[in-house]
Design a protein around this nucleic acid. Structure first.
Lengths: 247, 247
DNA sequence: CGTCGGCTTGATAGCACTCAATGAGTGTGG
DNA sequence: CCACACTCATTGAGTGCTATCAAGCCGACG
């Protein structure tokens, strides 16, 4: 759901950026200027297609989406789950061609930011440019944590890590409650994100539930024991950079 | 080895950036201004420590280094292998705290770029800033490919993909011959990069050799059958963004 | 020539996969 | 109102890729 307020389109984005550094009114105005009319996208539909050459970047206002790559055998690997306030393809501003696709995992609302306007923004607002740059840098940091989880953690640790990450990222944009958040994703989506089979994901979720660490039903996750969850995940939130340090 | 020329320090970096967009003489001058005196680092030594708060970023001039994260059980996951011309911790400019370490895999030569000077650069050179931004964006794209390889490819495909990637990245900075390049890394390092055991890496290398796809001995890789190698890896070079498209 | 790091090979074990079937929940239409 | 179809989650059985343990090989080097 979009937060109420004078700038509903960019409220989550501003929330997130403001946790890292002060965002001036002029910068907020500049951000609002680059964003176009919000649009709805149905769950399951591609927001950006693989190998596309977008002329704009897209801000996710509400809902969940995912970066993914398709494989020749019909398989799919999700490389990041996006939450409200994320620019889902900001990197296409400079990459030009998408190296992956972005699919709406649920019904979403998105807003376009034309590349022409974003380039102009980088010419006029160096500090805001650095804040947007930082956002893509954190994407890379998230990828690295996923690599560590995939390469060296147990399946259970990997799942636990994903839950920790999503909880904190949703919290940063005011989309989670106290040790509780909506996550209306199927286990098949989780499997594609974790690089596991759906069967195994089911067993892992059951295991975390059985240990009394989380509850997960009806598309809502409840963290019953944050300490144990973080322990299983070996979670260290540094990479999400939720501290305020001027750039 | 450092390339000969008037700007030996930044020759590889300029090579790489120039493949993506024109770099003006003023921009080259600005880059040279931010870089300090090159220093040698012995193989095995950390160039940047995990959780550090660097006051400068570091350009890799020669040698190989790797981003890595340590685990509580003593294990290690390498998340990227850096080649000459790579800024190994450019993201620390905005992240402030390192979310991982960088270790010299071989003897290296590196040059520091103080954050204060880099920030000043972003204030004065928007276009060059975008080129540096793009470099960190490509790091993220490399991470994503590793995620796909780790999550959904076979061990053999994963190894093949890494070889394809390193070959093209070294080629982009003039550090590889015709289907041949130096890669003085141990199989233990490869194992930490692929998320496999050293034993299994040995078997995979043996398999690729046995199939007549590559030769690998004396720290040198020779690609005997690029087509088959790319096929095994399902390799698509888009993500390395080696095309010239102005940003 | 002995030691050492790195690579290779063999044997065994285990985590996660695939195939398969069942159950729960939801929506549709007769 | 109920039969049916469909998606999603769960559970069981058997398989396989990769880990671990262990031993041996090889080249470099003092």
């Amino acid at each position: 759901m979009t937060k109420p307020g004078p700038q509903p389109k960019i409220a989550t984005l501003i929330d997130k950026l403001s946790q890292r550094d002060h965002v001036s009114p002029e910068e907020i105005e500049a951000l609002r200027d680059v964003l176009g009319t919000p649009q709805e996208v149905r769950g399951g539909v591609d927001i950006v297609k693989e190998h596309a050459h977008p002329q704009q970047s897209t801000l996710l206002i509400s809902g969940f989406s995912a970066r993914y790559s398709s494989l020749s055998d019909g398989g799919r690997q999700i490389t990041e789950i996006n939450v409200p306030g994320d620019f889902i393809d900001l990197h296409s501003l400079l990459m030009k061609q998408m190296d992956h696709g972005v699919v709406a995992l649920t019904d979403c609302v998105v807003a376009p930011a034309p590349h022409v306007k974003l380039i102009a923004l980088t010419e006029r607002h160096p500090h805001l440019t650095r804040l947007l740059w930082l956002d893509t840098i954190i994407d890379a940091a998230i990828h690295r944590q996923w690599l560590v989880a995939m390469g060296r953690r147990s399946g259970l640790g990997h799942l636990a890590h994903l839950i920790c990450e999503l909880y904190l990222r949703l919290q940063a944009v005011g989309q989670s409650g106290r040790l509780r958040f909506d996550l209306p994703l199927t286990q098949a989506v989780l499997a594609d994100a974790l690089g596991l089979s759906t069967v195994h994901v089911s067993r892992l979720v059951t295991e975390l539930r059985g240990e009394g660490v989380i509850n997960w039903s009806g598309g809502q996750v409840e963290i019953l024991d944050w300490h144990r969850l973080a322990e299983i995940a070996e979670f260290d939130a540094t990479y999400l950079r939720l501290q305020n340090e001027p750039v």
